[in-house]
Design a protein around this nucleic acid. Structure first.
Length: 467
RNA sequence: GCCCCCAUCGUCUAGUGGCCUAGGACACCACCCUUUCAAGGUGGCGGCACGGGUUCGAAUCCCGUUGGGGGUGCCA
């Protein structure tokens, strides 16, 4: 016997467009991508376009855009598609006809209500095979059902091992609706066969469909693909992430300033861990090390705190010039980029997401600092604050206006009042930046300049003295 | 109800019979550093769901219990 021809690995990712791209879908896409790349195969994008999705092409564009953001780009040679399920409608019906003619599928004229009544009477859930041997011809209102054989179906799953299903528990499922349109299950298998898909990597919720699809593959005359059902992502209630309750749109994380690299890295650690003591690693290593066989079996909690930690880490890993470049789109266009660039190193260690960047340095660019009343009340109420402000204005007017000198001057003034610099800087900080927290003060003042610093301090003093 | 999947610190995980008085990461706490806040450094808290087996030896294998999740459409 001749050795089997080598098969080119083809992994399909088949999202249904719904107006946003789910983080769980992103992880599944990444799994497919990693395996396709490592095996030297192809990542096939096939959109399960519904009627609604067809009327909203922007949904599909959104998916492609989101995939590109996480590094899965249509420009990459590994990428193939996008294809659309609807464009294979003819093949779906053709396959159904073949199945009917070969006797593995049959027509049934029972309505859904009638099926339900029979189930209730017999006490057995689901369709009972009523029309199996009635020899019905195709006709309006009649559905085509698959004749599930006796025995068991074993689904060999890369992450779960062999999963055995007793066919007695699988009803004769519908292939074609009464109106003649094919069901998703059929369409899916026919498309996979047509595209020579070798690996089906998808969420665990599809596992119960696998035996049905596997039977369909065989009925169509093909060996089923390699299956891999990966666990779902859950919320703190341990429920599958839902659009209503949870923040699941990848686009939203992008808009909130999460870095694609951080998101990708974090997503890959849910259900899988690289060898060694560090989870932070570049995609190139993940791609080389990721194995479906090593994916965990239990659902994983999508932890925003840990994502944030990853994001902060990734921001800090950026070379300074890259960080500055990355900040550009997050800053108002009229802010002086040179000023920001000089402060950037102080910003980089203090932000969690890119949306934190602008508010951290806004006082340098605004005509008036935005005074946070809580901060004001906390630091300005004492007599010490007023006196210190007065002395500092005087000192700052005379000193060489650079960070080191400013620091020395403030330190001296603090000593007069028995306060360390940590306490002494607070009123100045609130007067100039409007808040108790922020980038290093002296450096900020130097950047602001003597005139503006003194003006803000005098304004604060005026307010304190009721002027 | 029925079918299927799952079960290690609060969370994500390492662990595939002896290397485990169970390792790492996030979170949390303490200390150090310090110009606020961060960042960084050091240390700490904290877990094999339960009960039976198998074995010289079990987090690891088997059975049961409990608990969680998913699926049960002429949806995708």
């Amino acid at each position: 016997m001749a050795p089997p021809a080598p098969v080119h690995p083809r992994l399909r990712f088949a999202p249904s467009p719904t107006g946003f791209f789910h983080v769980g879908g992103a992880r599944t896409a990444l799994y497919n991508w990693a395996i396709a790349r490592r095996l030297g195969g192809t990542f096939v994008l096939r959109i399960e376009d519904t009627d609604e999705a067809r009327n909203r092409p922007e949904w599909t564009d959104g998916i492609i855009d989101s995939l590109a953001w996480i590094g899965i780009s249509t420009d990459d040679p590994t990428f193939e598609g996008p294809y659309f399920q609807s464009s294979y409608a003819g093949a779906h019906i053709e396959a159904a006809t073949r199945l009917y003619e070969s006797g593995v599928a049959y027509y049934c004229d029972l309505t859904p209500d009638e099926v339900q009544v029979r189930a209730k009477v017999s006490g057995k859930p689901g369709y009972d095979g009523f029309s199996r041997d009635r020899g019905l011809e195709p006709g309006p209102g009649r559905v085509l059902r698959f004749r599930v054989p006796d025995g068991t179906t074993v689904v060999s799953d890369l992450v779960r091992g062999d999963v055995e299903f007793d066919n007695a528990h699988i009803e004769d499922f519908v292939l074609v609706r009464g109106n003649g349109t094919p069901m998703f299950l059929l369409a899916n298998v026919v498309d996979d066969v047509a595209m020579a898909i070798t690996h089906v990597v998808r969420a665990e919720e599809h596992l119960p469909n696998a035996p049905k699809q596997q039977m369909l593959w065989r009925a169509l005359g093909h060996e089923p693909p390699t299956w891999a059902h990966v666990p779902v992502l859950v919320n703190e209630q341990r429920k599958k992430l839902s659009k209503r309750r949870d923040k699941v749109a990848l686009e939203q994380y992008r808009a909130e300033g999460y870095l694609a690299d951080a998101m990708v890295n974090y997503l890959m650690t849910l259900g899988w861990a690289p060898a060694g003591d560090t989870e932070i690693m570049p995609w190139s290593r993940i791609e080389a090390e990721f194995r479906l066989e090593d994916v965990n079996h239990a659902p994983a909690f999508f932890d925003l705190k840990k994502l944030s930690a990853f994001n902060g880490e990734y921001i800090r890993m950026l070379p300074l010039d890259e960080f500055i470049a990355a900040c550009d789109e997050w800053l108002p266009s009229d802010w002086d980029r040179a000023v920001f660039a000089r402060m950037a190193e102080h910003v980089q260690t203090r932000v969690v997401t890119m949306t934190d960047v602008a508010p951290m340095v806004d006082f340098l660019f605004l005509a008036e600092p935005e005074i946070d009343e809580g901060s004001w009340n906390k630091t300005m109420s004492s007599e010490f604050a007023r006196a210190l402000l007065r002395d500092t204005i005087e000192a700052f007017a005379a000193v060489d206006f650079v960070a080191a000198e400013l620091k020395t001057a403030l330190e001296e003034i603090g000593e007069r009042y028995g306060q360390k610099l940590g306490k002494a800087q607070a009123p100045v900080r609130v007067a100039v930046t409007g808040r108790t927290v922020g980038p290093p003060l002296m450096e900020s003042l130097e950047e602001l300049g003597r005139d503006e610093t003194l003006r803000r301090m005098r304004a604060a003093l005026d307010r304190l003295e009721g002027r």
